[in-house]
């Protein structure tokens, strides 16, 4: 029997059959570390995991020379896209426009091809020839290191912004924060809070048929696939949340909605792309969030591996905690 507790098997289900069989033959240790599986038309199939790159031949054996590697055919790419979209590209129009589809289990599949424009906006993508499967892992306890800085003494939380470049575990930390704050933390005597989660790209809770596939806590309501700005309004109006959580704010509408939420007395946890506090302050679209709105900033990187916490800053951008080198090493 195969060990189906690996998250990777959830992803392999959505891969063309022969490629699936090739990858399944990998040693369990490598299989479990896989983070990305990349298909490029006419180019070798490449897997990434644990900072390493793997090439396979058509029998699923590891090879080091790309000349021996398995080359992705047009049928492979077509079948991959077809499987990922449940044989129905038309029902994933919005996702394709955004460049990725979220499959069961919260895994993301990025796609690239020829973009078709209409009135200067992306209408759809044709001739898809690059596919990237990204394995999403829920790490329970990922937020333990920062939790102390976020919980406030009045049993609530501080408005928190997580600043991180892509691929550094920003969403993983956010998800775990939501889970712990929502379910409560008995060890710290912290009672759970009502959280409204606006999961625009379906990757935090990873809902499938309305049910969160990831654990996001027992007091969390999820608004799935809703644009953030509208979602925040809907949440405040309908679900009376104490905390609103959302991922990757960036546009000025988002900033306006976050401001509205804070003014309505709701706490906020959210994230942006960036590598330090300066990146946040330089984003003109978020101008009205710059001044003292957030009480905690968590800066992340992958300097010591995915999920490195570089610093936690307070409202005046003063460090509460610097480079956690020691703790990371323990």
């Amino acid at each position: 029997m195969k060990m189906n507790n690996y998250k990777i098997y959830e992803v392999l289900k959505f891969m063309p059959k022969d490629i699936n069989e090739m990858i399944e033959k990998l040693p369990a240790l490598i299989l479990d570390s896989i983070e990305e599986i990349r298909l490029r038309l006419g180019k070798p199939l490449i897997l990434y995991g644990g900072g390493k790159e793997y090439l396979l031949d058509k029998n699923g054996r590891l090879v080091f020379d790309e000349k021996n590697a398995y080359i992705c055919s047009i049928a492979d790419i077509k079948n991959a896209v077809s499987l990922v979209t449940n044989f129905s590209m038309y029902s994933f129009e919005d996702d394709i426009r955004n460049g990725f589809v979220t499959i069961d289990g919260g895994h993301r599949v990025g796609i690239c091809g020829k973009v078709v424009l209409e009135n200067g906006k992306v209408r759809t993508m044709r001739d898809i020839s690059f596919v990237n499967y990204r394995v999403a892992r829920q790490v329970l306890g990922a937020a333990d290191k920062v939790l102390n800085y976020i919980l406030s003494s009045d049993h609530s939380i501080y408005n928190t912004l997580i600043i991180s470049p892509p691929q550094c575990g920003k969403t993983t930390i956010l998800r775990d924060l939501i889970r712990q704050i929502s379910s409560g933390i008995p060890a710290m005597g912290y009672k759970g809070r009502k959280i409204g989660l606006i999961d625009e790209r379906n990757e935090i809770a990873a809902c499938s048929l309305g049910l969160p596939k990831n654990d996001v806590g027992i007091r969390t309501d999820v608004l799935d696939g809703c644009p953030k700005a509208e979602g925040i309004q809907i949440m405040i109006r309908s679900m009376s949340p104490e905390i609103i959580a959302t991922d990757e704010i960036g546009r000025s509408e988002d900033a306006g909605a976050v401001l509205d939420a804070i003014n309505a007395g709701v706490k906020i946890i959210t994230t942006i792309h960036g590598s330090d506090i300066g990146d946040f302050l330089r984003k003109p679209a978020l101008d009205n969030l710059h001044k003292y709105l957030f009480e905690r900033y968590i800066i992340m990187s992958r300097r010591l591996g995915v999920g490195t916490i570089e610093a936690v800053l307070d409202a005046d951008y003063k460090a509460l905690k610097n480079t956690l080198t020691k703790e990371k090493l323990q």
Partner: peptide, 9 residues
């Protein structure tokens, strides 16, 4: 069938 957007279908 199913291999393009709605307009195309």
């Amino acid at each position: 069938l199913g291999s393009s957007d709605r307009e195309d279908q």
